[in-house]
């Protein structure tokens, strides 16, 4: 995300005209961008490269030993638990993405286009706060709320209703994942809707477009990159999440993130865990590129 928005920022901040030579003017933004680039190399590119290298290493006596061995890849990619976890994790992430988009869009639409500026500010703050509070804590709280002896069931019992089996299934998993994704997705969509040219909507209305037509033919196409970013973010967060599947479904069945932990826990198989990690990154990168291509094509050409 940071990288994608960088060129825009630097392009916008380079002042038009001005005195200095053209070369100096071109060099300054590059110079200012250098620390970020170095930071990315040190804390993203190098660890990632190391992760890839480790996938070929071996474990001897619980110690990593450099080697070039494709056995880890073969072992992981052909194992049934990995294949099942891959399909399951992709399903879970897709469902969570669709759910969070469907729930977040009406909220974002109302915040961005219906509320007064003051109320809008309040709602945005209201959405930002959860992003900065502990997610693990919230997942644990859900465990207490949803458990057989928990808050919901205590309430049902008071009303004389039978207990509901809420914890440990798709419902509890999605509640947990939405806790993670919903605030972020709503914020992205809100900013996208705030940033679009609102006169387009007025023009469409003046030309007699129905509410549905305005939405499908004006608003949604106008925020396409925002939709893409929101979707990718939701997918990325839920695809890699560890806390909700562990604490709200009891690892039953395990996702890829859980499989990584299991692989390290028994046998200290860091190389095989790295294979799973690299595979997950590859899938996420693929999803990112795909969505970028789908949402940005018309805009740039």
């Amino acid at each position: 995300m940071t990288e994608a928005s960088l060129p825009e920022i630097s392009a916008a901040s380079s002042p038009p005209g001005g005195r200095g030579t053209r070369r100096a003017r071109a060099a300054l933004p590059l110079l200012l961008g250098l620390p970020v680039a170095l930071w990315q190399v040190a804390f993203f590119v190098l660890p990632l490269a190391f992760l890839v290298v480790v996938t070929f290493w071996k474990v001897r006596n619980f110690r990593l030993a450099p080697a070039f061995d494709l056995a880890n890849w073969e072992k992981v990619l052909t194992s049934t638990p990995f294949q099942r976890a891959l399909v399951y994790t992709a399903e879970v992430a897709l469902v969570a993405t669709v759910l969070s988009m469907l729930l977040a869009f009406p909220a974002a639409h109302a915040i961005a286009l219906r509320l007064s500026a003051r109320a809008r500010g309040r709602w945005i703050a209201f959405l930002i706060i959860p992003v900065f509070s502990s997610y693990i804590l919230k997942v644990y709280a859900w465990q207490v709320v949803l458990s057989p002896g928990g808050l919901v069931n205590t309430g049902l019992a008071l009303l004389g209703l039978p207990a509901a089996d809420l914890l440990g299934g798709t419902l509890s998993l999605n509640i947990g994942l939405l806790t993670l994704t919903l605030p972020v997705v709503t914020l992205i969509l809100t900013f996208a809707l705030m940033g679009m040219d609102h006169s387009l909507i007025e023009a469409a209305r003046n030309l007699g477009a129905s509410k549905v037509q305005v939405l499908t033919q004006v608003t949604l196409p106008a925020i396409k990159p925002g939709l893409g970013l929101a979707g990718v973010t939701a997918f990325l967060l839920s695809f890699g999440d560890y806390a909700s599947p562990v604490f709200l479904t009891g690892s039953n069945p395990p996702t890829l993130a859980i499989l990584i932990v299991d692989t390290v826990k028994s046998g200290s198989q860091w190389p095989r865990a790295s294979v799973i990690g690299v595979s997950m990154l590859a899938i996420l990168a693929l999803a990112f590129v795909l969505v970028q291509a789908l949402t940005q094509k018309r805009k740039t050409r």
Binding site: Q143, P148, G149, G168, S251, N252
Partner: peptide, 19 residues
């Protein structure tokens, strides 16, 4: 028959909360 596969902390809570 399985309800889940628990870490030590979650064994305590799953026994306690009836899961």
């Amino acid at each position: 028959q399985a309800s889940g596969f628990y870490t030590i902390a979650d064994i305590f809570s799953s026994l306690r909360n009836g899961q």
